[in-house]
Design a protein around this nucleic acid. Structure first.
Lengths: 229, 229
DNA sequence: CTTCAACGTTGATATAAATCAACGGTCTTA
DNA sequence: TAAGACCGTTGATTTATATCAACGTTGAAG
């Protein structure tokens, strides 16, 4: 078990939103904080369950997805250190509206939602950062809505590859711990379709695939494919 | 041209979020306010354009949709009086991320985003209401994401009918000014598919359709169809 | 009044993508 | 070591849905 920072004030894995807080405020956060460790595949919180805490990811990788009927999932995003997961139910019905699962060994701090809400009330800068965070999530969901409903398979897979490389892993040959099913859940399709699309891209020399390492050889081409759908 | 209230303090069409403001704050909003009138089909703001104002709908009906390539749209929601339209770009890139169009004769007040942001900073209650509003939008987008990607046509159309009746028009036989294409844009399908689905529902005695008036005869059945996809 | 464009509807056809099935590989677990 | 489960991959088949085409209606514009 990794040792996480003993106090928020000195924590180096602190999410940006806490930067504007003074020591008194940080102490309040620290008192409410619960450090947790999750192994690969473990559920951090589940859609529909009561929402008591915001989750700040201090190491590892977390995937968030909405669940429909019949075990179908749509991955709405990944959260890396040092970021926190905004739970939109905190202000509405105190329920989680998506599920969060650790993709690899992951440590997080849970902070009670009412501590967050108190900070939103008392610290304007914090409130602004908080709203900016939610806004980004909204913008992202809008983008996903068009991507998943208006593009066909090659476009969606291209988009997903670019996302993984540029936003999630921020590397070009990137090594992912995601299964084909995970990628399918990002694209809203079956894993077989993902495999076929990857194979096509590989045959066309646009990417190379070596196990879990994917190298995007022709990014402009992928961007074009993603754009024209 | 209808006369809108002359001052926010005495306005009867004020969105709920302004309820917690004192007269000084309301005056500030009033000074920044621009009343506008739009006819059926007119664009209030367009995706990608600079975002300077929040739009408060005082009469009529507004549809909001994200635009993809190739003229395809997904309607993400309708805004009725007395509600305002949250533009997520206001806190991020000062751009609109969806388009808003008047569905019928519509009056709105435009309020500069920085006035909103100032209120968020100075009034905690306002900030809370504001965040709750965005949270609801996020929850709704999550729901749409699963609906549009995981259900097939009958399920999506049933869902749309229930939405129109229960949330948008709040009536059971309801008369809608929406075209079949609009309904298709709500469901992420073609207008032909909508027509066929409505015909099937009609033949099965689940609904009646008379021009733009739709009567949901068997709501539980529609809910089942919506659920099982 | 006429013309044209957009809408609603229906049927026939094409096609994208899911499903089904099979197999080898890897990892876990008994 | 062996058994079972899951993953990745590929091919064959089915199916849901889009596309294409045609036509009557309505409403707006010239």
């Amino acid at each position: 078990m990794k040792v996480i920072s003993t106090h928020c004030i000195s924590c180096k894995n602190r999410a940006d939103i806490f930067s504007g807080l003074n020591d008194t405020e940080l102490s309040k956060v620290n008192d409410a904080r619960v450090g947790m460790h999750y192994s690969h595949g473990e559920i951090i919180f589940k859609q529909g369950s009561p929402c008591h805490d915001f989750v700040c990811v201090t190491s590892g990788l977390v995937k968030c997805f909405v669940e429909g009927e019949d075990d179908k999932k749509i991955i709405i995003g990944f959260v890396r250190p040092v970021e926190y997961i905004f739970a939109p139910g905190a202000y509405i019905d105190k329920r989680h509206h998506f599920t969060a699962i650790a993709c690899e060994e992951t440590t997080v701090c849970l902070v009670a939602t009412d501590v967050f809400q108190e900070l939103v009330r008392s610290n304007h800068e914090f409130a602004n950062e908080f709203i900016a965070k939610i806004s980004n999530q909204t913008i992202d969901l809008c983008r996903q809505l068009t991507n998943l409903t208006q593009k066909q398979i090659p476009g969606r897979v291209a988009e997903t590859l670019l996302r993984l490389s540029q936003i999630v892993y921020k590397k070009n040959p990137f090594t992912s711990c995601l299964s084909r099913q995970d990628m399918a859940d990002m694209c809203g399709m079956t894993k077989e379709s993902v495999v076929r699309a990857l194979k096509t891209f590989k045959d066309e020399g646009i990417i190379t695939v070596d196990g879990n390492q994917i190298h995007l050889l022709n990014v402009p081409m992928l961007e074009t494919i993603s754009k024209i759908g």
